[in-house]
Write a protein that binds this DNA or RNA. Structure first.
Length: 353
DNA sequence: CGCCTTTGACCAGCGC
DNA sequence: GCGCTGGTCAAAGGCG
């Protein structure tokens, strides 16, 4: 099914073009934009400019939020359709295979294929998570268990299975699995046995530079660091203060649709059904950086790490900030923005500035 | 000395 | 019942 043709995820940069205040000559505006011509602009005009810019950005932000909402709705609708379709298809397959002389193996395979498709559509929800396929836990239990999957782009040369999410983890095992040559590392929250959250980290089969971190359960304690979480996305991903520590911060910030291989792009897969935006399916990645929170800090936080924080206003504000930060650092976005702006100012397509 | 990682051994579920 | 596999345990060693 062609999702991209059904859901318009494109970012229309011209949906709300910059409005030039009537009182300001066009040339002056250009000067402000390109050369930051503060010296040539009266303070009063500058203030009104800033106010105008603030209003414009606010409106733009609102518009983006609306677009995101629409996208989520579209996604949910599509997901429901696909789920319905797969249910029908699954029933049909079972009927035909039982009627025919197909082997048990082929039955299993088709069923597994259907499940695989469903998983990809449903964002690999906890009940169908591949990692739970061989779990020892009773079914009811791992339905309850909140499972979140986070994709983190790292340096290809970086062989450590460390996903920095701000929480402190204790590694208790490592195993090479059958379906992936890369070892899988098992972590427990350092607050165990009080906190029973577990984390599995393994490199993606498709892209060795992507770490797949699967979180099971919810932290019953506060985030070790809020401020560090905020700092983390603006600093280098590799500057761990303690080379052996798994402490760090993961900024799960979907914002730019450009895949920046040089940076540690982070793809958030919210596998909870209530989380309507399954970012990872579109491979929307962030070009923001991550870094350690440093040391064994245990400061209180409400951001990052735990997937139960994502609906909080602070986290959303954090997301917005990181989106803005990421976009402004993205050369392709800057180019697109410049083209959009120059297209507005120069209707004759004179984009040589 | 305490905390951490490493790693081989062990356990349990599942399919044949 | 046996083998395969994923998950966990725990002893040993490293590091600050």
């Amino acid at each position: 099914m062609e999702f991209t043709s059904l859901v318009d995820t494109s970012l229309d940069l011209n949906f709300r073009p910059l409005r030039v205040p009537d009182g300001i000559p066009k040339q002056e505006v250009e000067s402000n934009f390109i050369g930051l011509g503060i010296d040539h602009t009266p303070v009063k005009d500058e203030a009104s400019d800033l106010l105008e810019e603030l209003n414009r950005v606010s409106a733009e932000n609102k518009k983006l939020t609306e677009m995101l909402t629409v996208m989520c709705q579209n996604y949910n609708a599509l997901r429901n359709q696909v789920t319905e379709y797969m249910n029908k298809h699954s029933t049909t397959t079972a009927t035909t295979t039982s009627a025919d002389d197909h082997s048990a193996g082929s039955k299993k395979r088709s069923k597994a294929e259907n499940n695989e498709i469903l998983k990809s559509v449903q964002g690999e929800s906890s009940s169908s998570d591949e990692d739970n396929s061989c779990t020892k836990k009773p079914r009811e239990e791992h339905i309850k268990t909140k499972t979140t999957r986070v994709y983190v782009r790292t340096e290809a040369s970086d062989t450590s299975l460390i996903v920095k999410d701000g929480y402190q983890w204790r590694k208790y095992g490592q195993k090479v699995t059958r379906d992936n040559p890369s070892p899988r590392a098992y972590f427990k929250c350092s607050f165990a046995p009080t906190c029973l959250v577990k984390k599995k980290v393994q490199r993606s089969v498709e892209d060795q530079s992507i770490l797949v971190a699967t979180y099971e359960g919810e932290h019953n304690h506060s985030h070790p660091s809020k401020t560090d979480a905020a700092n983390a996305v603006t600093t280098s991903p590799c500057n761990r203060l303690n080379g052996k520590s798994t402490l760090g911060v993961t900024a799960s910030v979907p914002c730019s649709n450009t895949l920046n291989s040089s940076g540690p792009n982070i793809i958030l897969d919210l596998t909870e059904p209530k989380n309507t935006l399954q970012i990872d399916e579109k491979k929307v990645t962030s070009s923001t950086s991550t870094s350690t929170a440093g040391g064994h800090n245990k400061r209180k936080s409400s951001l990052g790490g735990g997937d139960n924080h994502q609906n909080r206003p602070e986290f959303q504000h954090f997301l917005i900030e990181q989106m803005a930060s990421s976009l402004t650092k993205d050369p392709s976005f800057q180019a697109a923005l410049a083209a959009a702006i120059s297209g507005k100012f120069l209707p004759n397509n004179q984009t040589d500035k």
